[in-house]
Design a protein around this nucleic acid. Structure first.
Length: 471
RNA sequence: GGCGGGGUGGCCAAGUGGUAAGGCACGGCUCUGCAAAAGCUGUAUUCGUCGGUUCGAUUCCGACCCUCGCCUCCA
């Protein structure tokens, strides 16, 4: 059995089969950040999920092309650019840089392509033109262009593939803005928004006049440009299911007229949101975290990542500082075991022990069931520790298990930082402590241990001698 | 109002028609000069409530309670 994923399109778990006839290439798109501010921990849950899926697909020997867009033009950005009085790119690049720093800190591999909406204006215009030609899109008197859901349906397309939509029952959203009053139908959405005074310098020329792209259309234009009209996987947060992804499907399939059974995207994967301390994150509750906030508190990106991928992606996850502390401890448990395996293996090479890999794969194949995956890993840790304790694990087996672990830590993206060398002053204190211990001066030995702790190092006395670890 | 998730030990979190993974926390023991780490071990007669189906339900069905999310540019 191969990988199974919950496909929002089917509303059930399905076997994953790539479009590539050779079954090797996988093309994946993830709705990236809107760079108007620092991304918060909730945003990163989705991006870490995307990275996890990419890594796991690679672990399963697929060749993955990952595209993640940067939304760098949008209402909020325009408003802030105007406030700040700086050019668009100058404003967005600051947050974009921060975003990629955070992504790296979280151990996320760089996507192969990171397209910016503002670099794809011609492609966006081209797609809108196709929709206009087919009569699916219409221009209003102010120069905006809207997508007509009715016309789209009249041509035989299905609107409402990801979610049941019943416009009669929908509450008119409070967020419908004034500039959309000219739409034919309330559900129609903007493809091109005519330039208004408040936009300042942020506009582009188009066949319909000056303006800027709507939100949904950039993802359609960029994903199809870089991955083709049909591709395998599209990810995003659960809030994007409607309307963003529904509209993406409509624009893409309406504009490109996918043939036969082809679809714009075969598998839609949506990550659930997270709560912080049991509540929806909000600045007023004081539970709003960016990654930077957590790093300042002394946690590492790796620890945050561990916590973010410790539970199933389709479950609302309750992120807590206690949980983060627990994650730190749990990760150290793994690290300690791996370090011991390393010293036992003594640098010997071996092919990966199949047992751990098999169990891990079975767990993750089931719609990325990381909870089960971690259970496999911790069971393995206990087994390794037990065998090392009673000396029943030889160097060769240690190397084989270590080789298996290397593949798993790569799949999970939680490879430990190359252990920084213990500073000389710490080593000096340690050897002084060994001296006084030999002389049975345990009082002084314990004093030194306290000094080391104050310097941020804990000491473990092992049969092979003392070992220093960062506290 | 419509649609969709959840409610499992102190906390987090898997899971299954046959009697509850794993992590954290806590207690005991082994080891240790003492610790730490590690190992062993103890912590849910029970999986929101009430009914139903069944030889048997936490797992299926129904009702109810609570909770979270989406419903037009929020991951």
């Amino acid at each position: 059995m191969g990988l199974r994923l919950f496909n929002t399109l089917a509303r059930q778990t399905e076997s994953f089969e790539p479009l590539d006839p050779d079954g090797k290439q996988v093309r994946l798109y993830c709705c990236g950040p809107t760079v108007h501010d620092f991304a918060h921990i909730g945003n990163f849950r989705t991006f870490v999920l995307t990275d996890l899926l990419c890594r796991y697909l690679r672990f399963r020997d697929y060749d993955v092309t990952h595209v993640m867009n940067i939304t760098d033009v949008e209402d909020k950005i325009i408003a802030r650019v105007k406030e700040a009085g700086v050019p668009l790119r100058e404003y967005t690049s600051k947050y974009e840089t921060a975003f990629f720093e955070d992504l790296a800190a979280l151990g996320c591999a760089s996507p192969q392509h990171v397209p910016h909406a503002t670099d794809y204006i011609p492609e966006i215009i081209d797609l809108i033109s196709k929709l206009v030609e087919r009569g699916i899109a219409y221009r209003t008197s102010d120069g905006s262009v809207y997508f007509s859901i009715q016309k789209y349906k009249d041509l035989g397309h299905v609107y409402g593939q990801l979610t049941k939509v019943d416009f009669e029952q929908m509450r008119p959203g409070a967020r419908v803005t004034d500039d959309e009053y000219e739409k034919d139908a309330v559900a129609d959405f903007a493809l091109w928004k005519a330039r208004v005074a408040g936009d300042g310098d942020v506009f582009w020329e188009s066949p319909w006049g000056e303006g800027r792209p709507g939100w949904h259309v950039e993802c359609s234009a960029m994903s199809m440009k870089l991955l083709g009209p049909s591709f395998d996987l599209h990810l995003g947060g659960e809030d994007l299911v409607f309307p963003h992804h529904e509209d993406e499907i409509a624009q893409s399939e309406g504009g490109c007229q996918h043939q036969g059974g082809d679809k714009f995207v075969r598998y839609w994967v949506h990550g659930a949101h997270l709560l912080v301390e049991g509540k929806k994150m909000s600045k007023s509750l004081g539970n709003f975290f960016t990654l930077r906030d957590l790093l300042e508190q002394g946690y590492t990106g790796r620890e945050v990542r561990f916590v973010l991928i410790s539970s199933h992606y389709r479950e609302t996850f309750n992120f807590t500082i206690d949980g983060l502390k627990g994650g730190k401890t749990a990760l150290r448990r793994i690290d300690d075991c791996v370090e011991k395996l390393e010293s036992l293996a003594g640098g010997g090479e071996a092919s990966a022990d199949p047992e751990l890999l098999k169990n891990f794969t079975e767990a993750l194949d089931d719609d990325l069931n990381v909870s089960s995956g971690w259970a496999v890993i911790f069971d393995w840790v206990r087994e390794m520790n037990r065998k090392m304790n009673d000396q029943s694990l030889g160097a060769e087996l240690a190397a084989a298990n270590l080789a298996a672990w290397r593949k798993i830590e790569e799949a999970l993206g939680i490879k430990g930082e190359a252990g920084d060398d213990t500073p000389k002053e710490i080593l000096d204190l340690m050897s002084e402590r060994q001296e006084v211990r030999k002389q049975k001066n345990f009082q002084r030995a314990d004093e030194i241990r306290d000094e080391l702790l104050a310097a941020g190092w804990t000491i473990e006395d092992t049969p092979e001698g003392p070992r220093a670890k960062r506290a």
